[in-house]
Write a protein that binds this DNA or RNA. Structure first.
Length: 266
DNA sequence: ATGGTCGCCGAGCGA
């Protein structure tokens, strides 16, 4: 089972790019972030015509996540549990940043798609929201771990885990993506027993998933690694490969992110 | 130090 994560930065502007990517790389499951539309505005037919089932958790203009899968998507949960003031609109968050479903191939895999808050400027309300969201994500991971079923927690974490995950780490010293407290919160999630799929496959330098549209960041390979695939122990046992589709960043009408994918024996 | 680029939509925010 090939599972890919891709922050597409707006489905309306990215429809053709995403379609080409699906045809060329043929993931069984794609986890999409920043669809930037309400559910009714999502072009389901684009995916259904390629043989995918579609589940969305959208929002007007901002955020929004989706799961598309060649296998049925079962037991869908929209919204990360544990928000203050939960319950409105049937979701656990004002911002649409989380979706979860079970995909049954050769084995059943719980797939969690997330778009973690950016958190800038830090300190401030937005940074506090980011840290609180990370604590909730950790709690959800702990719940899922208790089930001892394989799960994949993938998406745009908006976290640069270590200095080697940025071309110019010094430029991010005061940024919410790289502050020590951010990295500590990320480690607290990983240290529950999750595996950073890319880092167990390779220690190669200059592996990034995001290059800013500004200042010619892509041309200078001035990137950061912020899109991650974390695996439960039972999923890590099934890991066969993990790669970043870096070439997608060089396309016409690219997102500012590149996809990352894992191949699981599932 | 500033401004540089995108996508959402139709001004300005978020990244």
């Amino acid at each position: 089972m090939k599972i890919a994560s891709y922050n597409i930065n707006g489905i309306k502007a990215r429809a053709a790019t995403v379609r080409d990517w699906l045809i060329e790389t043929a993931p069984d499951v794609a986890i999409l972030q920043e669809i930037k539309t309400i559910d009714a505005g999502f072009p389901r037919e684009l995916f259904e015509d390629l043989g995918y089932s579609v589940e969305t958790h959208g929002q007007k203009s901002f955020n929004g996540v989706a799961l598309v899968s060649k296998y049925p998507l079962e037991d869908v949960v929209r919204g990360l549990p544990g928000a203050q003031g939960a319950g409105r609109n049937g979701a656990d968050d004002e911002e649409a940043r989380y979706i979860e479903a079970t995909v049954v191939g050769q084995k059943a895999v719980r797939v969690c798609g997330l778009y973690l808050p950016n958190g800038n400027p830090a300190p401030g309300e937005k940074y506090a929201y980011k840290l609180a969201w990370m604590a909730r994500l950790r709690a959800r991971a702990a719940e899922l771990l208790a089930s001892e079923e394989p799960f994949v927690m993938a998406g745009d974490y908006n976290v640069i885990p270590q200095a080697e995950d940025a071309a110019r780490p010094e430029a991010w010293a005061k940024d919410a993506l790289y502050l020590p407290e951010t990295r500590a919160a990320f480690r607290r999630i990983v240290n529950l027993g999750l595996t950073d799929a890319l880092r167990v496959r390779t220690q190669a330098p200059d592996l990034y998933t995001f290059w800013d549209f500004q200042r010619g960041a892509w041309a200078r390979n001035d990137g950061i690694r912020i899109d991650h695939v974390l695996l439960s122990p039972q999923a890590a046992d099934l890991l066969e490969d993990c790669q970043i589709d870096t070439a997608m960043r060089a396309r016409e009408k690219p997102s500012d992110h590149a996809p990352i994918w894992v191949q699981l024996a599932a």
